Amino acid sequence: MVCRLNMVTHQFVHDIFVEYSINWLARRENMFQERRNTIATLSAAAVVVSIGFASPVWAQQRVTIGTNQAGTFYNQIGGLMATLVQSKTGVQSTSRPFSGTSVYLPQLHRGEITFGINSALDSSNAYTGGGVYKQPLNHVRAALLVYRAPYGYFAKSSSGMKTIADLKGKKVIVTQRAIASFDKFNEAILATAGLTPADVSPVTVSGVVESVRSVTEDKVVAAPLLLGIPLLREADAAIPGGIRVLAFGPNDAKLDELRGITTMILKPAKPLVGVKEPTKVARFDVYLNTGSDISADTVYKVVKTVYENWGAMQKQMPPLRGVKPADLVPVRMSHPFHEGAVRYFREAGIWSDAHKAQQDALLAQMTK
């Protein structure tokens, strides 16, 4: 109704302007002001009526999911979830790409977007005000764990490099401004081979897309990236000889200090370009996040929709098949879950005393 009234208003003003002279309009300015005031009043009334008749269970009129740039795995997950939520609930839902996850975490905190996809590390740092976050973004909440992502450094196969130790003295991307919390992550990866940023020539780029381009254009020899994503597969196809994922060294101490991060042995598989042999890399938890100011009903409905259709999502996106339904609600959480998510978990019988203890401890951090 609001949109229809606005369209009528613009058409009316346009028709009057064409038909009469500027002087005529000037003499009747008061008349138009009265009409504009009347329309504004009607518009406000329409909003009140719309809110008054909204469903008490599903009041959210639009769901927006923040993601990384197009071509990234986060963007694919966000798009798939938006399609699922819209098809199952009828609520308009869309994914919105940003230059990086650190860009939209503050928007989640302020309730400016409904959901966003973030790593456990970035989420934990944002919630507590750690790392690059100078103030706690303590309204950030988890909705679901959605993926455990393999991550590591890649280089051109033609470079001859095979391990992280081979990066010593070379130009390497360490900082991605749009994924600010990953500085420490990348430094911890270097540390597995006994290296520090001082042992390489560290380079800063804007984000994921520039990281890939920097390797393909020989501006750097290696860059860190989520492995198996379409962007990396495109790079592998474009580079003569393809790419190679570099194996970590034996020292995991720095990685163990980071929340939501473990190591794994990645085996060669078709989507995992650059993995030439069983290769030690990192793995980090990825969450669908929201903000504490988003209504519990909205979060409940989205979590219920995703959880109950997880099998269908796995069929459409094979990398998700490694995440079992039980994994979607980890006990060792990096930041607290939203009350709407907890409500669904309790109803589904998947919220334990151990979950509650972790939740209470994380919430208590913000009351000290």
Rank of each mutant, 00 (worst) to 15 (best):
V302W: 04
G322N: 03
E187S: 05
A165I: 09
P197Y: 02
P230I: 13
T290G: 03
K168A: 09
L225M: 08
A45C: 04
N186A: 12
Y74A: 13
A165D: 10
I173H: 07
L246R: 01
I239D: 00
D327Y: 12
I229E: 14
A222L: 11
L246T: 00
N30Y: 03
L80T: 07
V49W: 03
S124Y: 14
V18I: 07
G291C: 07
R244H: 06
S159E: 12
T89Y: 10
L231P: 00
I243D: 02
F185H: 05
L231S: 12
M317P: 01
G52S: 10
L328M: 15
T38K: 08
N186W: 01
I350D: 14
M333E: 12
L84G: 06
Y20Q: 04
R244W: 00
A296L: 09
L144S: 07
G207D: 03
I239R: 00
D285M: 13
F98Y: 15
N251C: 07
S87F: 04
E187H: 08
T175C: 10
M317S: 13
A120M: 15
D166Y: 04
V85S: 12
L121G: 05
S124Q: 11
P268F: 01
R177I: 11
D122S: 15
W351L: 13
S211D: 08
V302F: 04
L328R: 10
C3V: 04
E112Q: 15
K270L: 05
R177A: 09
N289S: 03
N289C: 07
L288I: 04
A312L: 14
Q359T: 10
T38G: 09
I16P: 03
F32E: 11
G241N: 05
G52L: 07
F248W: 02
V85C: 13
G249F: 01
L266K: 00
W24Y: 06
A188T: 09
Y344E: 14
A237T: 07
Y151D: 02
E339N: 11
Q33P: 01
Y104D: 15
I265Y: 00
P271Y: 02
R35E: 11
Q61A: 06
A54L: 04
L145E: 03
V221F: 14
F12G: 04
G90M: 11
N125A: 15
K368L: 10
L25N: 03
V209R: 08
V212E: 03
Y287H: 02
A82N: 09
A223D: 13
A44T: 10
N251P: 02
L25T: 11
N138M: 14
V57W: 02
S95N: 14
M7A: 03
A46S: 11
T114L: 15
K315Y: 13
V200W: 05
H355M: 14
M7T: 01
R332A: 15
P56G: 06
A282P: 00
Q176W: 05
A223L: 07
D183Q: 07
G152S: 09
L258S: 00
D297N: 05
L42S: 10
Y147Q: 11
